[in-house]
Amino acid sequence: MVFDASAAARDRILLSAQQLFYQQGIRATGIDKVIAAAGVTKVTFYRHFPAKNTLILAFLQTRHQRWMTAFRSALAQQEDLVDALPAALLSWFNDDDYRGCAFINTAAELGNTLPEASLLIRQHKQDMAQAIADKLPTEMQDKTAPIVLLVEGAIVQVQIGEEAEEIVQVLRSALTPLLQ
């Protein structure tokens, strides 16, 4: 992991957790691994994050802000949702570190064991749906829920190894009649 060694300890911890949780999973990533990657002591870690659950919630909040900013920006690149949504997703799918949706992954890993995380996950999905709805004309916003289901399916399909370009074409094919 490469980050600015002069960055604040909390930022280094959070960045390390972001990378480790997303790439290796939350349950598979112990606190000692995060501490080592961040280059901090246990005392410093626990001063900022008194428990792993606190770090998980901070991870989800930070991931949400970063992902939503990138998603909205990507959607804004094209006028029509039939073009904008597949392009936005394909760009994300082609990231070297793509490992699916951090929120779907967290829900699968944690289930309902951390209710605060479940709330953040639902909020993330609602905000994603709102970003999609915002791209639709008012009279077509009732199409948001089926579009979200298509997006979630595309995310999982690519995560399990399906070809990103093919999945995006399937998504585009499904969006076209839905939005006419």
Rank of each mutant, 00 (worst) to 15 (best):
A5R: 15
I31V: 13
S173M: 11
Q78F: 03
Q159D: 10
S173I: 12
L90N: 08
G30I: 05
P86T: 07
D80Y: 11
R72T: 15
F93I: 14
S6P: 01
Y46V: 04
A154W: 09
R122G: 00
D127I: 02
D83N: 03
R10T: 06
V2W: 15
I167R: 12
E165P: 08
L85D: 13
L90K: 07
L89Y: 02
K52T: 14
G39K: 06
S16T: 13
Y46G: 03
V40C: 03
I13R: 09
A102I: 15
L60F: 06
H64D: 13
L171S: 02
Q141E: 04
L15F: 12
S16C: 05
M68V: 13
A36E: 15
F71S: 01
E139A: 01
L75W: 04
E166S: 07
A88L: 07
S118G: 13
Q61A: 05
A58Q: 10
A131L: 14
Q159S: 09
Y22R: 06
Q123Y: 08
G161I: 07
L60A: 03
V34M: 04
A88V: 10
R72N: 08
L81Y: 09
E116M: 06
Q18S: 05
E79W: 12
S6K: 08
L179Q: 12
A76S: 15
S73Q: 12
R27D: 01
Q77V: 04
Q169E: 06
T113L: 02
T138W: 08
I132Q: 07
V148K: 01
V168M: 04
L60N: 06
L175N: 05
G25Y: 13
L75I: 05
Q130I: 01
L150N: 00
I132M: 04
Q65S: 14
N94T: 06
L171E: 03
K52Q: 10
I35Q: 00
I104G: 00
I31H: 00
D80I: 14
L85K: 11
G111I: 04
L178A: 02
L149Q: 03
A70V: 14
N105H: 08
A154P: 05
P115E: 11
I147D: 01
F45M: 03
A133Q: 14
E152V: 10
E163N: 12
Y22G: 00
K135N: 03
D142E: 11
D4A: 09
N94Q: 13
Y22K: 05
L120A: 10
L175S: 04
D97H: 15
L179Y: 14
N105M: 08
H48A: 04
W92M: 08
K33C: 03
R47H: 09
L57G: 05
A70M: 12
G30W: 00
P115I: 06
A58N: 09
K143S: 01
I160A: 01
L171C: 02
A36F: 10
R10Y: 06
F3L: 10
A108S: 13
A129S: 13
T29L: 01
M140C: 06
I13G: 07
A84V: 12
A84G: 08
F49V: 08
S173C: 05
Y46L: 01
D80F: 06
A102W: 15
I160S: 03
V43R: 02
L85M: 10
L171F: 09
E162D: 10
T176F: 02
Q77M: 07
F21P: 01
A17Y: 06
Y46F: 03
Q24D: 13
I31P: 02
R99N: 08
T29V: 02
R122S: 03
A7E: 07
